[in-house]
Amino acid sequence: MSTISIITSVHDGGHHYIDEAYQSLREQKLPGDWEWHWYVQEDGRTGITDGILPRDSRISIESGLPARAAVGRTHALARATGELVRTLDADDVLLPGALERDIETLERVPWCVSACLDLHPDGSTSPGPYDPEGGPVAPGRFLDEVVEQRLSVQAATFAARRPLVLALGGWHALTGAEGVALLLAAEAVAPGEFIAEPSILYRKHPDQTTAADHYWKPAETATRREAGIQRARAMREVGWTWP
């Protein structure tokens, strides 16, 4: 069997929709002999998933010291064994065909991201306003967009070959935007593609990390953005590329 490892970090307060994430994962149809395994890492040791997620041999749940999503995802990555990895936030919902499209795309390129639909509290959805066209991503496109503060994709849709993510050190040790930093690092060393068909419902709700005012303090926001930019530029300058 071939495996795609789903990587999720969950914190106390951000776990209320994780059952919907699981149900959307169960409904995924995968090609051929592919299967999924879900690696859930609690950011803390409160046991928040107890009684929510069922006993399923495809789910691996661990916990650790609270250190935010980047650390949680990287700990989950260390346990993952699949050829491919895919990010799934604990409050998002996979749309039909999402993993199948990732698997097919990653046969051609080492990483990909996809469109998503915002899911609003009233149940309505809306598309991303700046989605690029589907197909190969022009080298440096997303780096330029981050520099100009107009990133056109959600890094929460990132999928890649696991050895590439390991070689990049997993998710950048930041208090946020760790997915953007990983996306920029992958773009710096390897070709990728954008999948125009939406892969997730990106849930908007008051308890999400990015809804808190303190998350957007200007100095810290700028530092997070600059950290990802500097790493991507350094990789380009040293000339390292994914074989």
Rank of each mutant, 00 (worst) to 15 (best):
I59W: 11
L168Y: 06
G179I: 09
W34I: 01
K204L: 10
A188R: 07
A211D: 13
K204T: 09
Y39I: 00
L174R: 10
T210H: 12
D131Y: 09
A138P: 02
T175Y: 10
W240D: 06
L174Y: 12
L88E: 03
A67I: 04
V71A: 15
I229L: 06
V180D: 14
R225L: 12
T209N: 10
P127A: 12
W34C: 03
S24G: 10
P31I: 08
H37Q: 15
A98R: 05
P110I: 06
L182T: 04
R236Y: 08
A69T: 08
I195G: 03
T175S: 14
E35C: 04
A156Y: 08
L99I: 02
I59D: 09
R55D: 14
T210I: 09
V10M: 02
G82R: 09
E35K: 06
L94V: 05
R86G: 01
V109N: 02
I7E: 00
A219G: 13
T223E: 15
D12N: 08
W38S: 02
H11I: 03
R225F: 09
K29E: 15
P127H: 07
E20D: 13
W171F: 13
W216G: 04
D91H: 14
V10F: 01
V153I: 14
H172Y: 15
A98E: 03
A167G: 11
T105D: 05
A155Y: 11
A188N: 05
E226I: 03
A115N: 15
